[in-house]
Amino acid sequence: MMRKSRKESTAKLNQNGLTKRLLRLRVNGEVKEVATETNKTLLEVLREDLGLTGTKHGCELGECGTCTVLIDDEPVLSCLVLGVESEDADIVTVEGLMRDGRPHPLQRAFADLGATQCGYCIPGILLTSRALLDKNPHPTREQIREALAGNLCRCTGYTKILDAVELVVKGEVA
């Protein structure tokens, strides 16, 4: 009855003799080399091979937005991209939002305004928000809503999340 998961296909491919490959990934400004199965999603490579567990999984089917990372400044669902597809791209995860050891203004705003409750969806929401602000530093509340429509959060009712992004837009982060 259970839907086939990504892992089943992984197992088959491995039995068919699919081997590991050395991937060269540019993650958070650092080049990382990792030997891993070619059918692994970027999400799996980040979490399992690179230990970047800040990127979370909510469905692994591209439905919830939780695993969002930035690839060349675009928010991308890392569960729908293979690691091998991500070579030669700039990948940013939540760990890479910090600057010089200081949290990004979005990270501070989310903390200051209570926009993180359980916090599980927050990495994906932060990265989607950063992609928005990089392109449009002064979005309206409606534009923020539109940009975040693919990131589900079950705790906050989105209100404090929208407030926090607006706070950064206004440049009012402490």
């Binding site: 979370k56 999984h57 939002l97 949290p103 989310f110 209570g114 359980c118 916090g119 927050i122 990495p123």
Partner: peptide, 21 residues
Amino acid sequence: KPLRKVDALAKSTGDTRYADD
């Protein structure tokens, strides 16, 4: 007072380790 939660920054920097992490 409208204070930060004690774990708010850890949760917005990806530092919080959930069970599957």
